[in-house]
Design a protein around this nucleic acid. Structure first.
Length: 344
DNA sequence: AAGATTGCCAACCGCTGCGTT
DNA sequence: CAACGCAGCGGTTGGCAATCT
């Protein structure tokens, strides 16, 4: 397709923005909205291409941007989401209010990636660079596990985006169900398409089902056998007899027992229906220990980062002990076997 | 003190996907 | 259904500041 490189027009300025240009852009957008970015520079009296204006606005001038140091919580979120989504910065940014994708990308590349590398972990795969220690063992699939989780979450995000698009088109005629903020899970256990970030809501649903199962069986949530597994039939097994989430039909059921419930991908929403709905823990129930593999994952990273300058081995490298602990912990939290990837 | 190196981040480039014609 | 225009995305670069030698 005939792409027209917008910035190559003669006379258009490039490079750093001056305060005067910022002021013009800010004033124009505040008064008129951006409308068509292509038409904006001429209307605002700027010698820039529309694309440049859009970037300046979205990455710098927008009033709802938070600048400065990333908090621990933000770091955790970035690492968790990167493990799930990879370099999908815009998707990650939607779950970090007031941060831009560009800022997150820069922060990842300049800080977090290096931190992982220092720990001997491949920032692309979130696997140890020396992956031989897990080969041949019964817990050899952590990378594949995360990859599966990523595929699953990725597919879910795509479905979510599609649903949002469709929902927007029907916005005038639809009655929305509103889920719990940030979770997508309503008290009636429906996963809804809201404009709120509903990151990891499926994971939370898993965690919910998992917690419920653990509770009912009286098992210790910290048990090293408390793991999740992808099964060869495209199901997700929540172990110790717990639940199976069929990734094709998204059926959640007790292994060999009654159904916990199932996800229905309707035209306007993703609904989790469950005969046990009233028993499923709500994410805000603080007394229910929702053990979270991503939290465990990230906390370990962050704990390691705290000592990244002082507690290395004498040769300055990350100790094998730390890496083993780190991965054993992850493998305790997540244990999936490779199988087909989920499809929405 | 000065040149070299490294780190950081704003901005750019080019590709992709979507909506419109 | 193809062509086109546009906005958004992720990768990369350029320039400045800080640090090192």
């Amino acid at each position: 397709m005939g792409r027209s490189p917008c910035c190559e027009k003669v006379g258009l300025k490039k490079g750093p923005w001056t305060p005067e240009e910022d002021q013009k852009l800010l004033a124009y957008v505040e008064e008129h909205g951006h409308g068509s970015w292509r038409a904006l520079p001429a209307r605002a009296g700027l010698q820039r291409c529309g694309k440049s204006c859009r970037l300046r606005w979205t990455n710098y001038l927008r009033p709802d941007i938070k600048r400065g140091k990333f908090s621990l919580q933000e770091e955790q979120t970035i690492i968790q989401l990167h493990a799930l989504l990879g370099n999908r910065w815009s998707a990650i940014a939607t779950h970090l209010p007031k941060r831009t994708d560009n800022e997150i990308k820069n922060y990842w590349n300049t800080h977090l990636k290096k931190r992982l590398l220092k720990m001997g972990i491949d920032p692309l795969t979130h696997k140890p660079k020396n992956d031989t220690l897990s080969l041949g063992s019964g817990q050899s699939n952590s990378g594949a596990n995360l990859s599966h989780m990523a595929q699953w979450e990725s597919a879910r995000l795509e479905a979510e985006a599609r649903l949002v698009r469709e929902s927007k088109m029907r916005a005038n005629s639809l009655h929305y169900q509103h889920g719990l903020p940030g979770t997508g899970l309503s008290s009636g256990s429906s996963l809804t398409t809201t404009t709120e970030p509903i990151c990891l809501d499926v994971l939370k649903a898993w965690q919910g089902a998992w917690s419920k199962s653990m509770k009912s069986s009286g098992q210790d949530l910290e048990s090293p056998t408390s793991t999740l597994s992808f099964l060869s039939d495209n199901s997700l097994l929540i172990p110790n007899s717990m639940a199976t989430i069929d990734c094709g039909g998204l059926i959640v059921k007790e292994e060999g027992e009654e159904d916990i419930g199932h996800f229905n991908l309707g035209p306007n929403e993703m609904v989790f229906e469950s005969p046990l709905a009233s028993e499923l823990p709500k994410p805000e129930d603080e007394d229910i220990p929702v053990t979270n593999f991503t939290d465990g994952f990230t906390n370990l990273l962050l704990e390691n980062s705290d000592s990244s300058d002082g507690s290395r081995d004498s040769d300055g490298t990350c100790s094998e002990y730390e890496n083993k602990n780190y991965w054993n912990e992850i493998l305790n939290l997540v244990n999936c076997s490779p199988s087909g990837s989920p499809v929405f």
